[in-house]
Amino acid sequence: MSSLIPRGGSLLDEFFKDVAPGFYVRPLHGDGLPSPAQIKVDVKESDGGFTVHAEVPGVAKEDIHVSLEGNVVSLRAEVRQHDQQTDGEKVLRSERYFGQVARSFALPADVDASQAKAKYDNGVLTLTLPKKQASNAQRLHIE
């Protein structure tokens, strides 16, 4: 005899799947850990260099790490979220989320890392990355 109820879940599970999709996997505070694709970046180029704006909301500036190697920019952020709600002495809910997100991308020219600057304000990381000046090439006289 076959079952009328699909295996793998109860009718109540099916109800919540239709009414509130993701009810069981979505954190109660609304945001899970961000994925690397969630670090949104805008890159602008000028004659002298590049300006990068990266959205890293909710992360302390001490937990953001930027590395430069040639023309590759790497961003890494450690995400720490701690939510706690209390009613008197009884904890009703306590959630903790920890993790890292990272993103790397290549620029069309090498960056002068010694002159690069970073600023973090209101969840936006701004990188000012001057282009590395071409070495003083000398023309050799052919004898």
Rank of each mutant, 00 (worst) to 15 (best):
L28C: 10
K117G: 10
K17G: 02
S114H: 14
A134R: 06
A118G: 02
H141G: 01
D18W: 00
F23G: 08
R7E: 03
A116I: 09
A134N: 09
I64W: 07
P21W: 01
D42Y: 00
I5V: 14
A37E: 15
Y24M: 07
S94N: 14
T51A: 07
Q115S: 09
R26D: 09
A109K: 11
A77Q: 03
S114G: 08
L75E: 01
V66R: 14
S104A: 13
G30E: 02
E78R: 11
N136C: 11
G30Q: 06
V66W: 10
N122G: 04
Y97N: 07
E78H: 08
E143F: 13
L107D: 06
L129S: 04
K61W: 15
K119G: 00
P34H: 05
E143M: 15
P108A: 09
A77R: 04
T86G: 01
E143A: 15
D110R: 10
L33S: 07
V41Y: 01
D13R: 00
E95C: 02
S74W: 00
V25D: 13
A54E: 01
D121V: 12
E89H: 03
Y120H: 03
K90E: 15
D110I: 02
T128P: 01
S10W: 02
E55T: 06
P21C: 01
D121H: 07
R96C: 03
G49A: 02
L125V: 00
L75V: 04
R7C: 00
E55R: 05
D112H: 11
L140T: 04
K132T: 05
R139F: 15
P130R: 01
P27T: 03
V59F: 09
G30L: 10
I142L: 09
K40M: 08
K90G: 04
P34S: 10
D18G: 10
R139P: 08
R26P: 05
S10P: 07
N122Y: 11
I64D: 07
V124K: 01
V66S: 11
E14F: 05
L140M: 08
S104W: 01
D83F: 13
G32Q: 06
V72C: 14
Q81H: 06
G30H: 05
N122H: 14
H82Q: 13
R93D: 15
T128Y: 15
A113N: 04
H29L: 14
G49N: 00
K119I: 02
P130C: 05
H53F: 14
T126V: 12
R26L: 12
V19N: 12
P27I: 04
P27W: 05
G70N: 15
I39S: 02
L107R: 05
P36G: 03
D121Q: 12
Y24R: 05
E78Q: 10
N136P: 05
L140H: 03
F15G: 04
Q133I: 14
Q81I: 13
K90A: 13
V41L: 08
F16P: 02
G32M: 05
K131T: 09
K119H: 06
Q85I: 12
S135T: 07
Q138W: 00
